[in-house]
Amino acid sequence: MKKNIFTMLFTLTFLILPLITYGSPPFFEGKTMRIMVGVSAGGGFDLHARILARHMPKYIPGKPTIIVENVTGAGGLICANQLYKAVEPDGLTFAHFNGGFLFAQALEQPGIEFDARKFGYLGCIAKENAVLWVTKASGLRSIEQLMASKTPVKLGGTGIGAYAPDSIIRIWKAVSNMPVQLVTPYKGGAQVRLAAEAGELAGSVISWDAMKAAWPKRFETGEAFVLLQAVEKPMKDLPKVPTDMILAKTEEGKKLIEVGVHLNNIFARPFVIGPNIPKDRLEILKAAFEKTMKDKEFLAECEKSRLPVDAVTGDELERAVMNAFKTPKPILDKLKDVIYKQ
């Protein structure tokens, strides 16, 4: 009997002692976290979140389980609104939706029920990095040829307010009188590519990574060409393709491209968390996100799926969003006109 009590005391000491010395177990331990994805399952957007959900737990103390839940509707706006209004501020739920809605708030668009300045920002796995591409059949080989075209060049869009193609094409047209005709709305990038293949369109403006994944050989074999890139500095594998800054002739034009195209590019695919999250939890998640971006298995899995990794940290992302809101009013008004007016 005595021996038993002794054993019990011994065991208890060794069970309880670690708890006392190391404090209470980490908050995330044994918890299930959710990533709400604003689009339906299957696309690159959704897959990024799913791969993240597999690897991020390693870097969160307590190794929670992360599940992905598709909250679709209104292009992701329902997801963004829900994150702001209806999610418990416990740090267990974050979201991945079209970052264009964050800018849409700065442009006073309807339907927005959140304040982007109050969200928490974890980071981005990739930027959009869009390019203007055309098919061989269009006959166009350079941006100069396109600018000199007598008839409008038909470029496909996927609907008003879509960062790429629609908004970028509208901004370019506004700053340079580019002879292009935006034919819209096709249901998604795949339909645009199909219409271009069928000769209905000359091309479009779509993420370079998505184009490389969908048409892996055509840009090498000369069946399609990249004429212009919608980024600040040329991308590594497109060193000779001009950036869209060459279109801007005035200071205002430069500013429109800077804000409407390049700044938006940074927060096009954000991972966002709701407002009023306890600061320590937010910091844990931000750090975990950043570490995951360098995780070997995570990178290998993205590469196998041909998904881009061009990470943005939480702080960079937050700065970009705040900068969008600090843009001078005349520029925002002009962008509102260019992007949304008929």
Binding site: S40, A41, G42, G43, G44, D46, L47, A213, K304, S305, R306, L307
Partner: peptide, 10 residues
């Protein structure tokens, strides 16, 4: 669409 996701993963 989900099958295409499976294509991508593969």
């Amino acid at each position: 669409a989900i099958l295409i996701g499976a294509f991508l993963i593969q």
